[in-house]
Design a binder for these strands. Structure first.
Lengths: 199, 199
DNA sequence: TTAGGAATTCTAACAGCGTTAGGAAGCAGG
DNA sequence: CCTGCTTCCTAACGCTGTTAGAATTCCTAA
């Protein structure tokens, strides 16, 4: 009975096609156009078919978020090609901001409130871990004892996130936002190296 | 004909009541509950009445955003009581994060995509100006020449914004987010003082 | 005082959203 | 053939923001 296998393949295939269509809609027409009916129409199905592959819209969007974090991860790993830990940290910051600028709608969904906070956090984990790794080697390279690694990581991550979001906010261009992020990270790392305690 | 004046007063009054009701709904039940019908019900009117006072929902939400930035401004100005420019900068950062934690739903609307980016920016301007002022006195106090004041301001603002949003994301508490924001700003300022050029 | 016009408010409706129920079509195996 | 299973669609529900039109009230002016 190879037919059941073919059925399963077809199922998975249309599932993927739905995701791709959703991604296409999101990147082209923004999150406001990301409706079940629109997606279904694009894959030439009626709306209820989507619910045979995803429990609800949130589950589908979560898939887009996962995909987005895959892209982000790739961008960050590209930054790891840089030799020299300090350069690498700056490239990570710039890479993050560049990603946000290259995929504004996807980035918006990844960080918006359409998906619950804990799921967002889980999706971001691998990317955060890349930063955490680099932060470890940075602290070793400069012989800096970071009192709390997670805290330090969140400072960097939060900073870059803030500047990326501000960059997407429009007034400042993406290249400038990249430079600002680099500058901010540079300053923060420098502050940690000179090790002036806070108060 | 004082009646027309009374009418005008009444009009303005119900307009205010609508805003207050909307704020109440938002702060209590979150942005998902912020519907025209819900607000209208709370002020004991039918839904279309809202449209006699606001062109559309966005205009009403924009009013909430303005109110929120008023609150934020007050919080920041409270930080100006601190003597010593460095302490003041840290208190601004902590105050911003505290505000985000104290009014999470309002903060979400203030920075979410429900309102277009340029209007968000305009609403935030007074609060940003407070930071800019302090940044000027800081640069003078430490005899630091900031190549671009606006850029520096945006770095700080973006950083604090990022950490505040991360703080609201749940895992890390608000007090900790405040400390992280202080630490980040501290590090950035220290970096600017030691003035190591970027690359 | 009364007629008329303006302002106010309501109900009903429209288009769109996410989502679900029920039935029609096609395909598998006995 | 025919029974069961999967797949798919139409129709609908309840919700959203928003608008049209009628009804009511209130103020003004003759």
């Amino acid at each position: 009975m190879p037919s059941s296998q073919r059925r399963a393949r077809e199922r998975a295939s249309t599932r993927d096609r739905i995701i791709e269509a959703a991604l296409h809609v999101l990147e082209n027409d923004g999150s406001a156009a990301l409706t079940i009916r629109r997606i279904a129409t694009d894959v030439e199905y009626s709306a209820p078919v989507v619910y045979q592959h995803f429990a609800n819209k949130e589950a589908l969007v979560l898939e887009l978020v996962a995909y987005g974090h895959g892209l982000l991860l790739a961008e960050l790993q590209e930054a790891l090609g840089e030799s020299g830990i300090d350069q690498r940290m700056l490239r990570i910051a710039a890479g993050y901001v560049r990603f946000a600028g290259a995929h504004p709608h996807l980035y918006e969904v990844m960080n918006g409130t359409a998906v619950p906070a804990d799921e967002r956090r889980r999706a971001a984990e691998p990317a955060v871990d890349v930063l955490k790794d680099q932060l470890i080697t940075w602290s070793q390279a400069h012989d800096v004892m970071l009192t709390d690694l997670d805290e330090a990581c969140e400072i960097i991550w939060g900073t870059v996130y803030g500047l990326a979001s501000l960059g997407g906010l429009g007034t400042i261009g993406n290249e400038r936002a990249q430079r600002l992020a680099e500058q901010a990270v540079h300053a923060i790392l420098l502050g940690w190296r000179t090790g002036t305690p806070l108060r």
